[in-house]
């Protein structure tokens, strides 16, 4: 069981790196959405012995939300705001890729040192979540366009979701659905803000926002 789970988490980690290395927005959004679908599959895999209608529901909601709804919104925003597809990196692609890989390796090594329950020690859940959080941060720091930063934020949220899965027995999945809802609302708001920024500055380059500091 944990073999399949680890494989899925490994794939999600690979998608982190693809997100870091991709130079075009659609690719970045696609990596993020595939990662969302993988994340949606995970609770089903973990709880395959005692499937509950609530778990199935949340899994489906996650897949729909992270895999279809949010990427769809982003793509629409991209089209609506006429954003160029090329990403302008603030930290270059190769350095961010290397940083991400280093972060992943460190996360795996670090998770061994953490006092985890024995059933979690064998899986990659915790390192996977750490790696996704780190990837999100690198994207947030290292990309200049608002939309790629949104993607970074979502990958960061994926990491938090992964961490939540560790607690799948003790926390009701309601919390998770709450987060999901928050994020969807957040993306809506960001979509509106993106549109406003685009109108106000004629560009989505967040560097231009520095003029607002006073």
């Amino acid at each position: 069981m944990s073999g399949t789970l680890n494989l899925v988490i490994g794939l999600a980690m690979g998608l982190n790196l693809i997100a870091l290395g991709s130079s075009r927005l659609p690719m970045l959004i696609r990596a993020m959405s595939v990662q969302g679908v993988l994340l949606g599959v995970m609770p089903l895999l973990m709880e395959s012995e005692r499937l509950d209608w609530r778990i199935v529901l949340v899994a489906l909601a996650t897949m729909a939300g992270k895999g279809v709804l949010i990427p769809g919104l982003l793509r629409r925003a991209m089209r609506a705001a006429n954003i160029e597809r090329e990403i302008e990196p603030f930290i270059g692609f190769v350095p961010s890729l290397l940083l991400g890989a280093l972060g992943t390796i460190t996360a795996v090594a670090l998770a061994r040192a953490l006092p985890l329950l024995p059933e979690h020690a064998g899986t990659l859940l915790v390192p996977g979540s750490l790696a996704a959080i780190l990837t999100g941060f690198i994207l947030l720091i290292g990309r200049t366009k608002a939309i790629s930063q949104v993607c970074g934020y979502l990958i960061l949220e994926n990491g938090i979701y992964l961490f939540g899965l560790v607690l799948i027995h003790s926390t009701p999945l309601l919390v998770e659905s709450g987060i999901l809802l928050d994020v969807t609302v957040g993306v809506f708001i960001i979509g509106i803000i993106v549109d406003r920024i685009q109108r106000a500055f004629d560009s989505l380059d967040t560097r231009k926002l520095t003029t607002l500091r006073e």
């Binding site: 790196l17 290395g21 130079s23 692609f93 190769v94 890729l97 290397l98 890989a101």
Partner: peptide
């Protein structure tokens, strides 16, 4: 883009 792909291969 070549260094990026080669770095990916390395990783």
């Amino acid at each position: 883009r070549v260094p990026l792909l080669l770095t990916t291969a390395f990783l």
